[in-house]
Design a protein around this nucleic acid. Structure first.
Length: 857
RNA sequence: GCGGGCGUGGCGGAACCGGUAGACGCAACGGACUUAAAAUCCGUUAUCGCAGACGCGAUGUGGGGGUUCGAGUCCCCCCGCCCGCACCA
């Protein structure tokens, strides 16, 4: 019996799929479609295990749906713009385009080795001018539709990458990529009006039933809807031209507990006051330096600067509140100004204690005497009734909110507002390797769109990366053009788009990747939305929210008919591995470590190493396993199989050498099992015999139960459960020895074929090879999914558990659907049951048909 | 601080609607085959106690309580770990 040779076999079938264009698909309105998409990779140079897991999961879905009869779109492309290409250009003196396309070539070859059922004819990279020209056109359409604006604003500036970051790209005050503390700068930026869709983006989360609840929740929090009151205080002593201070509050009911007002350091009023107040100017400077960085320590400390002005309480003209500039008030949220009510807000309380401001409770818990209710170190934020609050006294918090909003609106100094945390998306980046923003700046005409006929605005190729900053800015000629409107000399916009724009519509481009327009309407109408999107949780907010926004924006300009791009979303877990350190505490590479007699040692020296916890594979911790090495050694099927075994797809997967070895043994075992049975089966296509021996029927039952079980498991994304059931079936099939019994040769073929088809989505190469040996010309990839016979999925007899007082005492083999009285009698007759009853009177016997009997004494 | 998730053998994990907890894999141990090893095949493996043996009994899904004939699953409280957000007024 020959040993299975994955190397030769895998290449063979990859070639067959390729030559026959097996996975090339066309829209076909007469057939049901299924669009499977995994997040497309950044072409960093080599694939990693995270990719292998991601694309294996998607491939199982793609192949399975295809077998179930769907017209499956499963494309692949490259998220090809971004900074690493520029870093590489700087370090290796290679052009970003050269570096990127070389990486794409490498990674495409690596992905092809995995044997993915991908329509490669649809491949593109976002750095192809053919792709980004449409992005530029869409941007101009968005501009016309009022979804784009330009604004001078404070930005998060990454001093290392020398670029602007979106709020979402700032993590703990540091750049998401460089890790450098972010600074604040004022720049003119292009913004996409994502806030115009804030309400929709929030409300429609409810419709995304096939998304993880966690992701929906994260987006909900990110959008951050709140309801409250915008309220204007009149000011005393304010600079000329400033007549009021508008604040936002979600607790208008606590207005009579106010003891100060506070504004952000960036608030225009603060800036105006600072001009004549050096102390304030210094304080503002201090706040800015803290900015978004190093707050971890400073955060706790509330600081303020008392200005010379006062705010008049809107319901009591004689009541003046001091106005502070405070470090804890954010300019970007609400109006950048608040009133402080220390009794009912912890931050305000901390601030009031520090500056000795009054703390007056105005909400007391139900049934508490207001006179005796005081505030200690903790603000009271719970429900209750209003007190010390004039016309609000005695009301509940909700009633008081409604009443004060009503009065404020009546008095013309406030109105009810819905406020969002979400801010518009700043998309300008001071980088070279991105999609150029198609705008020309003219001294007379302002920002002028590049005429569509002149698109694409292509990146110049002769650039240098010697200087920090944007090479487009340094280029001698590129930016000098004439104004399309007046013809006078003007300058191109030298900023490029945030690369998140590229990935906000690629799923639509895949529907008709060579279209002269962003995509053909017919194609997206047929293919979209994506039925199953698969990727990492790290994109729960950024990418997925942007893509949802972009789809709405594309609908608004009439390009597309849907709002939600991804009908189903699945977030897979990370691939982890143990970590190792030597005696000096330095990381030791995973492939240098081997276990000898249970202890981890350096392969070369035998020196013992400390085993650390399993963590996400990363170069810095040296716990990466190279997929190519694994595929070389074991083949893609084995790697895929291991990826799917054991760990549920949503959870982290721990890579172990024992695990991959186990998967390897299993592929060999399946090979031996099926090829070893070749002589014991009827020829392909033979009709079923009239009768089967009992032992043969048992085998058939196992076959059909496995088909049913695996089908259900794959439907539910429980791939590890599917794997377990296939294992179980292989155990049962291997144990079948009664090959001479009636109908055995037919049932053996049935079992072998079912097994082959069931492993098809997971180990496609092995499946094709076995299928061919079983005498089929058609590919597994073109064959329908096996169907389970319901009659064979059920046993004639059932095992009924017999409990006394809820404790298992014995099991009973009975024909299915034996009637209650019979079951009860049989159960009570059991020796062990009688012993457990021990002569006590039987109070009640619970009989659950075909499952369990419980005797209560 | 707020929000979410998770906690089951030596390990990864099964268990549909509350109905035989530990499927399946890994590891370990014993055996067969072999000159030997690898590979392969067969068997054992939750814990504790009793037993010469077929076996018998008890305990057991992070801890405590509750609902129920019956709880890994439902409810309440607590502990631990992981993730997300974090001065959002």
């Amino acid at each position: 019996m020959s040993r299975y040779n994955p190397r030769a076999t895998e290449t063979k079938w990859q070639k067959v799929w390729d030559e026959r264009n097996t996975f090339v698909v066309e829209a076909d309105p007469n057939r049901p479609k299924y669009y499977v998409l995994e997040m497309f990779p950044y072409p960093s140079g080599r694939i990693h295990m995270g990719h292998v897991r991601n694309y294996t999961l998607g491939d199982v879905v793609a192949r399975y749906r295809r077998a179930q009869g769907a017209n499956v779109l499963h494309p692949m492309g490259w998220d090809a713009f971004g900074m690493p290409a520029e870093n590489a250009a700087f370090e290796n003196k290679t052009h970003p385009a050269t570096w990127t396309y070389q990486n794409i070539d490498n990674m495409r070859a690596q992905l092809k080795e995995l044997g993915l059922a991908i329509d490669w004819s649809r491949e593109f990279a976002t750095c192809d001018p053919d792709y980004y020209t449409h992005e530029q056109a869409m941007f101009l359409d968005f501009l016309e539709a009022g979804l784009v604006y330009r604004k001078e604003s404070w930005v998060n500036w990454d001093p290392v990458d020398q670029t602007v970051l979106a709020n979402e790209q700032v993590i703990d005050g540091k750049g998401w990529r460089s890790g450098a503390p972010v600074e604040r700068r004022r720049l003119s930026q292009w913004f996409l009006k994502i806030t115009a869709f804030a309400e929709d983006l929030l409300a429609d989360l409810e419709k995304l039933e096939r998304w993880p609840a966690k992701v929906r929740l994260m987006q909900e929090n990110w959008i951050g809807r709140s309801e409250g009151l915008r309220l204007t205080f009149t000011l005393e002593g304010a600079p000329a031209g400033v007549d009021g201070l508008e604040v936002y509050t979600t607790r208008p009911d606590t207005l009579f507990g106010a003891s100060f007002c506070a504004i952000a350091a960036d608030h225009p009023l603060a800036e105006a006051l600072a001009q004549n107040d050096p102390g304030l100017a210094a304080f503002i400077e201090e706040c800015r330096r803290l900015g978004t960085s190093e707050e971890a320590i400073e955060r706790a400390e509330k600081k303020g600067y008392r200005t010379s002005i006062e705010a008049v309480h809107p319901f009591d003209a004689g009541w003046k509140l001091p106005v502070y500039v405070a470090n804890f008030v954010l300019m970007g949220y609400g109006t950048g100004a608040v009133f402080g009510c220390p009794a009912h807000d912890q931050r305000d309380l901390d601030f009031a204690r520090k500056y000795d401001l009054p703390v007056r409770p105005v909400v007391v818990p139900e049934g508490t005497d207001p006179a005796g209710f005081t505030i200690g170190d903790e603000a009271y934020v719970g429900p209750g009734r209003l007190a010390n609050s004039a016309f609000l006294d005695g009301m509940t918090v909700d009633d008081a909110k409604a009443e004060i909003i009503r009065r404020a609106e009546e008095g013309g100094f406030g109105h009810r507002t819905v406020n969002y945390r979400l801010r518009d998306w700043g998309v300008s980046r001071q980088r070279y390797w991105g999609c150029p923003i198609p705008i020309i700046h003219c001294d007379s005409c302002g920002a002028v769109p590049v005429p569509k006929a002149d698109l694409p605005v292509v990146l110049p190729e002769d650039v240098s990366f010697d200087k920090p900053g944007n090479p487009l800015e340094h280029h001698p000629t590129w930016k000098h053009v004439d104004c399309p409107k007046c013809g006078k000399p003007a300058r191109r916009e030298t900023d490029t788009f945030d690369t998140f724009i590229d990935s906000s519509w690629y799923f639509a481009r895949f529907c008709s990747p060579r279209s002269e327009r962003p995509f053909d309407r017919d194609a997206v109408d047929y293919w979209l939305p994506v039925d199953q999107y698969i990727g990492g949780i790290e994109h729960a907010i950024l990418h997925l929210l942007y893509a949802r926004f972009f789809t709405r924006a594309m609908k608004k300009i009439g390009l597309i008919g849907i709002e939600e791009p991804f009908d189903g979303m699945f977030t897979q877990g990370m691939v982890c591995h143990e970590t190792y350190r030597d005696a000096q505490g330095k990381w030791v590479a995973a492939d240098e470590v081997a276990y000898v007699d249970g202890t981890a040692r350096r392969r070369t020296t035998g020196e013992p190493v400390t085993v650390g916890r399993s963590e996400k594979m990363s170069k810095s911790k040296k716990n990466v396993i190279d997929p190519t090495a694994i595929i070389d050694q074991y083949g893609a099927d084995t790697a895929r199989w291991f990826m799917l075994s054991d760990s549920p797809p949503a959870r982290d997967l721990e890579w172990t050498s024992a695990g991959i070895e186990g998967a390897w043994r299993f592929t060999q075992r399946v090979w031996r099992l099926v090829t070893g049975m070749e002589d014991a089966m009827v020829p392909a296509g033979d009709a079923a015999p009239a009768a089967f021996a009992e032992s043969v029927t048992e085998l058939r039952r196992a076959t059909h139960r496995t088909i049913a079980g695996v089908t259900r498991a794959i439907d539910n994304f429980h791939f590890n459960a599917a794997v377990a059931q296939i294992h179980e079936f292989v155990n049962a099939f291997s144990g079948f020895k009664d090959t001479q019994a009636a109908g055995a040769d037919w049932a053996v073929r049935e079992a072998a074929e079912a097994l082959t088809l069931l492993i098809g989505p997971m180990m496609p190469h092995l499946a094709e090879e076995l299928w061919q040996r079983l005498g089929h010309d058609r590919l597994v990839a073109d064959s329908p999914w096996p169907k389970a016979d319901p009659a064979l999925c059920q046993d004639d007899t059932v095992t009924i558990a017999v409990q006394v007082q809820g404790k298992l005492r014995e099991t009973l083999e009975l024909p299915k659907d034996t009637d209650r009285a019979e079951v009860e009698a049989r159960a009570l007759a059991l020796d062990k049951v009688q012993r457990a009853i021990d002569g006590r009177p039987v109070r009640k016997v619970i009989v659950v048909p075909n499952r369990i009997v419980n005797v209560v004494v």
